[in-house]
Simulated scan of single mutants.
Amino acid sequence: MPRVFTSNQLLKGRYSEPGRVYLLTTVTEQRRPVFCDFHLGRLLVNQLRQAHDEGIVRSIAWVVMPDHCHWLLELRRKTLGELMCRFKSRSSVTVNQACQSSGRLWQKGYHDRAVRQEEDIKNIARYIIKKPIRAQLTTRIGDYPLWDACWF
């Protein structure tokens, strides 16, 4: 029988290393397509940029999809848990205020993957920003408004 992990068990062994590159993914509650609304997507983009501007991370690439977000970053300050708690909390407040609503914006937890030194970060960034094309939201990445990468 497959082993089922609780969210607390998933945190065991999670290690945050300043200077390390991570690929983070977080999903909206019940996979609601909240960010189909361009304005709400831009509010989330502002939160990604704020973490970068505050020096918590160096954002390498990100894309906001209708029901989730991918973020390739170099961790500078704080732990992954602190970063994601701050990001999810601030974005929830901002989006709920804009919608004049309340409640959960994000599912509990998030997926993180430490990028190994030998991996090609540019290829990972390209993979991330091409997600809207693979999801058939656009045919050209330049036409999709909710992404950025430090090389493009």
Rank of each mutant, 00 (worst) to 15 (best):
T25K: 09
N46C: 12
F5A: 11
L40R: 13
L40F: 07
S59N: 08
S7D: 10
L83W: 03
V95P: 06
E118A: 12
V93D: 02
Q9L: 14
T28Y: 00
W71L: 11
L83S: 03
C36T: 12
F38S: 11
L43H: 08
A135C: 07
F38L: 15
E29N: 12
I56W: 08
N8Y: 13
S101L: 05
P132S: 07
A149G: 04
C36L: 14
S16A: 04
R14H: 09
T139R: 12
E29R: 15
V21F: 05
V4M: 08
E119D: 13
C99P: 03
V57Y: 07
Q97D: 13
R86A: 08
M84K: 07
I141S: 00
G109Q: 03
T79G: 04
L44G: 01
R113M: 01
L72N: 02
V93H: 07
L83A: 02
L43E: 04
V45E: 13
R14T: 14
I128A: 06
F5N: 09
G19Q: 10
Y15S: 08
I133A: 05
D53Y: 12
R58Y: 11
W62H: 12
T138D: 05
V64W: 01
I56Y: 03
S102Q: 15
D37A: 07
I60G: 00
M65L: 13
S89W: 02
D143W: 00
D67C: 06
S92Q: 10
G19W: 06
L11R: 14
V64D: 00
C36M: 12
C99L: 15
G19H: 04
H39W: 10
V45P: 04
R140A: 14
K108S: 10
R77S: 01
H70A: 03
Q9I: 09
Q136F: 14
A61C: 11
G13K: 10
R116I: 05
I124N: 03
I121F: 01
I56C: 05
I133N: 04
S89R: 11
S59F: 06
L48N: 02
R86V: 00
W62G: 11
S101K: 11
Y127T: 15
L105R: 04
P145H: 07
K131V: 05
Q50W: 15
T26N: 14
K122P: 08
A149S: 12
S101H: 07
Q9K: 12
V93I: 14
N46Q: 15
F87S: 01
T94S: 15
A98Y: 05
R76I: 09
L23F: 15
L73S: 01
A51V: 01
S89V: 07
Y22K: 07
V63H: 05
S92A: 15
P132V: 06
Q107C: 02
I56H: 08
V4L: 12
R104F: 13
D143V: 03
R58H: 15
G109I: 04
A98W: 03
R49S: 04
M84Y: 10
A125V: 14
N8D: 10
A61D: 06
I141C: 05
T138V: 10
D67T: 00
H52S: 15
R90C: 04
V57Q: 14
M84G: 09
V4G: 06
V93M: 09
Q100W: 04
H111S: 05
I129F: 07
L11C: 09
